[in-house]
Amino acid sequence: MAVEVRLPTLLRGAAGGQSVVEVDASTVGEALQALAVAHPALSGQVLTDDGSLHRFVNVYLNDDDVRYLDKLETKVVSGDVVSILPAVAGGCGGRGDAVFDGAPAAPTAVLASPRRRRR
């Protein structure tokens, strides 16, 4: 089955600048393996060495996150679109204050809170 794999900007360089790669596959996992065969520089970027999905990427079949389908076993048919996007996460972290290195840097935007009152 010919399916399209859409790459995030971060991975396009490893695929000769292409944003879409067409591969032949019957599952999402096969599509990702075929992608790595076609573009070896992508090996290890999407699938880990043991063949599971890297935790820092999200993979979608059309409009659905494959983690909520059958993961890599999810079946694909011709015309399906498999999209890869980086998982975007962070936060102030589990403990106390974030480290602030004390560099006040350039003036940046400081907004007046809409509820702020000055008396």
């Binding site: 962070g90 936060g91 102030c92 972290g93 480290v99």
Partner: peptide
């Protein structure tokens, strides 16, 4: 509750 500077979590991810 912290300053607008990337935390180690932010940098790591």
């Amino acid at each position: 509750h912290t300053d607008p500077y990337p935390s180690p979590t932010d940098v790591g991810q």
